[in-house]
Amino acid sequence: MTLPSFTTLELTLADGIGQLVLNQPPSNMMTLEFFREFREAVDFIEGNPEFGALVISGNGRHFSAGAELKSLHDEIRTGSVVVDGRVTEVPELLIRNFQAFLKIEKFQIPVITAIRGVCLGSALELTLFSHFRFCGEDAIFGLPEVSFNLLPGLGGIKKMSSIVGTGRTLELVLKSNTFSAAEAYEMKLVHAILPRRELMTASIGFARSVMENYHLEKAGLYLKKYFA
């Protein structure tokens, strides 16, 4: 099977385990072009029987610093419909972006995000739609949108509140400061913290174990045993 090739990300497949790597180092910014290729990659993986598991990570030191705001602002300025000061229609593109996130969540294969370095804004939102979040000891998380007078707009509030609860979500979003791997683990946002060097191997190893031994529904229990 020939995999599509991309410029802002890399999609590979080995022994049934797909790897999607955000590939615009050092910060792996999520540009409009990235989102376009990301949607294409998601559509390619969806329902493809060759993929038994998917691991998403970032090339280099960081997962991703999130969405690139300038082009996003331009897109919104030209693509929104405003009636009496209220936005009634948003650019189609933005809807397709969150639909791609929702597709990942509904994949019938385990999706794991392996998070090194910074994981901010839309990048953190992306990880919320994966089934398992593993991070390196050095990982730094945050939803900084409010400090730019925006809000997390790709499911960050919806998903975050179902994972860490309403109170914590409100605090994190409004404070919009960063938090550490340990804090993320304490609020049950990530499932495991691993030494940075072992993160990829462990994530792929876990993906393989889940793929070979268990149905996705049972993987939560499996996780406990695996990292016990």
Partner: peptide, 19 residues
């Protein structure tokens, strides 16, 4: 979830336009 995310995106656009 679908509607909540739709609204989240809409609110994002409103703030982005104001900004």
């Amino acid at each position: 979830i679908n509607e909540a995310m739709q609204e989240e995106t809409r609110l994002f656009c409103e703030l982005a336009l104001a900004e």
